[in-house]
Amino acid sequence: MKEKNWFQTLIIFIVLFAVYGVVQLGISENLISDYYQTNIFLAGINIILAATLNLINGFTGHLSLGHAGFMAVGAYTSVVVTMKLGYPFPLAVLAGMVFAAVVGFIIGLPTLRLRGDYLAIATLGFGEIIRVILVNVEYLGGATGILGIPRLVNWTWLFWGTVLTLVLIRNFVRSSHGRACLAIRENEIAAEMMGVNSTYYKVLAFVLGAAGAGFAGSLYAHYFYVIQPSKFSFLLSFDILVMVMVGGLGSLTGSCVGALLLTVLSALLQNFPEFRMVLYAVMLIISAIYRPQGLFGDKEISAQLLSRWGGIFRATSRSE
């Protein structure tokens, strides 16, 4: 068992380095056009957003619609730190995450302490308020936003940032803390009765998710040169929600697939924005009704699952 785990880890590392190396080579040798580079970066940021939102929606079972708002908080904070205060980028990323987490705490504590289902409204409203405030604050560039942000994020940052996010979330979910969150999703009263402090864990998951969105925001800002309030409207929050729902509530690999799928879809449909949203709306309703567990349910894509799909049943035979 132990040896097999080591073997698996090794394979994963080899695959990761291969993907990293190939794309890096493509970028340095100008084999990947700007259009594809943009979409690759968007895909990475979307994966971070979807995975961190899944922590709230999928693993803890509470609907948040403010992910774009937290992303905005992270983006603007980090830009202020690098451009206006002149501190190094890693510090800016940290500041962006911490500030997003603090805002998440302020919103999450009162709403989650009582009725989890108010979270959806509170976060949706919060996201819009963030946007309105950003439009009105001269220091942050108002409606035009901030231009000329230095590009401090390269493929190395993005790739390993995404991998690190996924690893940390996976470790969290498979720890006693993550199990407490899952217990709340399954049955909050029973979780309390088993000694789980449900308020603490709901707020914790929400705050961690917000920090993750802040991380994505600071990467985004320092790659795309420009941030504008309109980029972080509730539409983006819905996009992320669709990624999570399509991929599966409670599946990290599902979130990755959902994020990739939606990145491709939005690239293809970028000239038909209304049609794209109608399509997403239908996807949301259908996935809620017919497959609330998403493409992957709470399963992860693993060697075992793949071998099962391949028709090799040795992995399943022992459970009969």
Binding site: L63, E274, F275, V278, A281, L284, S287, P292
Partner: peptide, 24 residues
């Protein structure tokens, strides 16, 4: 009889559908 989260998601889908259907 589904989970609250699924119902809320569907409601959001309905909302988006009306908004962007109208826009289209």
């Amino acid at each position: 009889n589904a989970s609250r989260l699924a119902a809320l998601t569907s409601a959001i889908g309905a909302s988006l559908f009306l908004e962007y259907g109208m826009m289209a």
